[in-house]
């Protein structure tokens, strides 16, 4: 039977849609496929989304999640939207640093700073 546990929680703020990953570990292929479907669904609800991805609950992820983030970011940038990542633990930040994905993702310490970094246009 397919897992029914939620993979993300979604909040619709004034400046941005905030998606929080609810799992501590994001590893398995089917989890990543489910996550991508959820995120693409959220992105497609808007013409031009400002999306903040909150990693506060995430303690472990594999490189497959980095691939997911790249695919999601392409989708957002295609519609001229903005993407911010926040609340990434030091260990997981190390993964972004090693792979140089810190160069292509805007990573902020927390939600407030992520929201503040968004340019006004939605």
């Amino acid at each position: 039977m397919a897992s029914l546990k939620p993979r993300v929680s979604v909040e619709y703020g004034e400046k941005a849609t905030i998606v929080t990953f609810t799992d501590e570990k994001i590893l398995e292929e089917r989890d990543i496929v489910e996550l991508q479907q959820s995120l693409v669904g959220i992105i497609e609800q808007s013409e031009k989304i400002n999306l903040i991805l909150d990693f506060a609950n995430v303690k472990f992820l594999s490189s497959a999640v980095l691939g997911l983030l790249i695919r999601v970011s392409k989708k957002i940038y295609e519609q001229d939207g903005q993407l911010r990542l926040c609340n990434i633990s030091p260990r997981i930040y190390e993964i972004f640093k090693i792979t140089r994905l810190t160069e292509i993702f805007d990573i902020l310490p927390d939600r407030a700073e992520a929201a503040a970094s968004l340019t006004k246009e939605p």
């Binding site: 980095l66 790249i70 090693i98 792979t99 140089r100 160069e103 292509i104």
Partner: peptide, 21 residues
Amino acid sequence: DPRYGDNLYKPAGRGMLLMRS
């Protein structure tokens, strides 16, 4: 090397780099 050029934007190819690191 997944860190440079167009490879940086590819969704795959980072596993070996992480293991080496």
